[in-house]
């Protein structure tokens, strides 16, 4: 009986913590559970959430991607540069942004899988390169004056739901489906859990790794498009520190940094916890300095609970 209770707690602990957080916040602040505020939270979470879904693939692969914030910025400025009014139809900047992100991820994966260099180092290099490329490409100035159709991606609503939230939900659905229902998903877990065993089972792990990092890059690119469209400009200095928020969401969600274990569902809860915290603490007028300390404590707490399993 006690064992069952423990199992239940360790499996749903993060969900219970999330529910409790919501209850506490809604008691403390009457504005918290209002529809507009909930949508606000979801919209704020969507950027980090999209990036974190990609990060989940990479971390299950026993890797890490420090470059997603910079890649997001590079994709944002590339996309924005094709999005001036009257130049190209809106799918051109979107494809350009997605391609840029995917390419960065592909290069990360290629070097990690083929040259067997630690992901930390490779993506640290890409982090600097992509940031530099974004600055070079724009001369350090934000790309502004974007077309209305481009700006709709981040600014419009469908059935009162912001489009970024809809994109986020679709990404979650597809990511989760890929990981849990497809052969590729199994190969991701196998490669991250025991690379030798995976190779001996006939899995071409280098392909899995390259594809995993490409997905992370693709989603960073997507997040870059959504963000630049929302703020109606592509800034080369955007997205700094986003990799850390994404890693935090993944880790809070119970994915192991050593690889082989984890779910998109956990990551989403992790991202939502961070989003709710930011929003709730804002509503309660807690200083942004203090918020950082609280966020850090939450991450540590989540990992400590996870280790107890």
């Amino acid at each position: 009986m006690r064992n069952q209770a423990f199992q239940f707690l360790s499996r749903y602990g993060i969900l219970i913590a999330f529910m409790m957080l919501i209850i506490v916040m809604s008691v403390l602040s009457p504005a918290f559970l209002k529809f507009t505020n909930v949508m606000n939270i979801l919209r704020q979470t969507s950027i980090n959430g999209i990036v974190a879904v990609g990060m989940t693939f990479v971390i299950i692969l026993a890797g890490i991607d420090l470059s997603v914030g910079s890649v997001l910025a590079l994709a944002a400025v590339v996309a924005a540069s094709f999005a001036h009014p009257g130049e190209y139809p809106v799918f051109v900047p979107i494809l350009a942004g997605l391609f840029t992100g995917s390419l960065c991820g592909f290069i990360n994966g290629l070097i990690i899988a083929k040259r067997r260099i630690a992901p930390f180092i490779v993506t640290l290099g890409m982090m600097t390169i992509a940031r530099g490329a974004a600055l070079v490409y724009t001369n350090g100035r934000p790309v502004i004056e974007l077309s209305d159709s481009y700006n709709k991606i981040g600014g419009k609503y469908v059935l009162s739901i912001p489009i970024p939230v809809i994109i986020f939900i679709i990404v979650v659905f597809i990511g989760s489906f890929l990981l849990s229902k497809t052969v590729f998903g199994r190969h991701v877990y196998a490669t991250g859990g025991n690379k030798t065993a995976a190779e001996l089972s006939g899995i071409i792990t280098s392909r899995v790794i390259i594809l995993g990092y490409s997905i992370a890059g693709f989603l960073a690119g997507l997040a870059g498009i959504v963000l630049s469209s929302r703020v109606m400009s592509g800034s080369p200095s955007t997205g700094q520190g986003y990799e850390l928020d994404a890693i935090a969401a993944v880790v809070i969600g119970g994915t192991r940094l050593t690889g082989g274990v984890g779910t998109i569902f956990g990551t989403i809860i992790g991202a939502l916890i961070i989003g709710v915290m930011n929003n709730g603490l804002d509503l309660l007028n807690v200083s942004s300095y203090l918020q950082q300390i609280v966020k850090g404590l939450i991450i540590l707490l989540a990992v400590m609970i996870d280790r107890k399993k």
């Binding site: 052969v183 199994r186 190969h187 877990y189 196998a190 859990g193 025991n194 030798t196 065993a197 995976a198 001996l200 089972s201 006939g202 899995i203 192991r256 082989g260 274990v261």
Partner: peptide
């Protein structure tokens, strides 16, 4: 342990890994 199994994964996961296709 070193090269045959993904220890943290399930029995099912391990058994069908090479034949998933």
């Amino acid at each position: 342990k070193l090269s045959g199994l993904h220890l943290l994964a399930s029995v099912l996961f391990n058994i069908t890994l090479p034949t998933l296709q």
